[in-house]
Write a protein that binds this DNA or RNA. Structure first.
Lengths: 151, 151
DNA sequence: GTGCATGCAAACGCTTTGCAACATG
DNA sequence: CATGTTGCAAAGCGTTTGCATGCAC
């Protein structure tokens, strides 16, 4: 495809990349794009979105930037069934996700009851240094509304 | 290394494959091998194990058999960080796993409190048809105890 | 005998890496 | 200027598929 010109969209990265790295046009674009999305996206999806938006950026860079964000705790990453990794901007605290299996919209869930439950189960079996990962998948109110679904 | 404490080349076809499929030497071997392992294993690991045990079986067949088992609900499968899929024989009921991050030994966890919690969270946000997946990872008693180390 | 099962090799999709050109601080 | 960064191409990885041969039933 003729990915010619660089009609670089005015990337107004609110706050810098925040990672201890150099601030480049590409990184700001990736971070900004990720901020605009409320659902989980793959590196490839985000790359397509950027290119479609006129931002010239390499797929490799998107991969590297998303990884850096995840490593820095600035983005959450989940692995889906087929092994593809999805990213999403999020708070740095420990939490889980309630993801819409239709549109991908995600709600962060924090619950001390769950944390306590996990610790209890772990202790009951003598396991130590236990971490846990949980994911809830369902249909969000919008996607579940009968009026907007096929009849 | 010939770690063949109870080298079971003798495939005891105790119970058949149980899937509505043909009973072949390869399938029985895969199922039998999976039964002998208490931890999660990848298709490749299981294949190596079989070959090392003297069983001639193709990697493709192992992949296909494990998938069939998982589809039939006779095996549980989890995807780890790098996208590799691990399998383990298990009961058909809904449950979760407490996996030792060192030796892979796994305990099945069933808890109605957790199920109730998940439903509560889902309803609170208006999500419907919510399913959940949870995994606990830690060190099992044996791996956590310095004196009784065993590898 | 008939059709599913097998397994080799090649294809796949996502991700990572080598390396030369480049931009940021 | 000196690094850290970029991005193309190619390699890597686990997994899947095409297809001819083979075996269970």
């Amino acid at each position: 495809m003729p990915a010619s010109s660089r009609a670089a969209s005015q990337v107004d990265a609110g706050e810098a990349v925040a990672i201890g790295q150099r601030s480049t046009r590409q990184r700001r674009a990736v971070v900004s794009a990720l901020d605009d999305i409320e659902a989980f996206v793959s590196a490839q999806q985000l790359h397509q979105r950027l290119v479609a938006d006129g931002t010239s950026v390499g797929l490799t860079t998107v991969y590297r930037t998303l990884q850096a964000l995840a490593d820095a705790g600035e983005a959450d990453s989940i692995v889906q069934e087929d092994g593809e990794v999805l990213y999403r901007r999020c708070s740095g605290d420990h939490h889980h996700h309630l993801v819409c299996r239709d549109c991908g919209v995600t709600i962060e869930v924090q619950d001390s009851d769950l944390e306590a439950w996990a610790r209890r189960i772990a202790r009951r079996h003598g396991y130590r240094d236990v971490t846990h990962s949980l994911e809830l998948r369902g249909l969000c109110p919008e996607c579940a509304t009968p009026s907007r679904r096929r009849s």
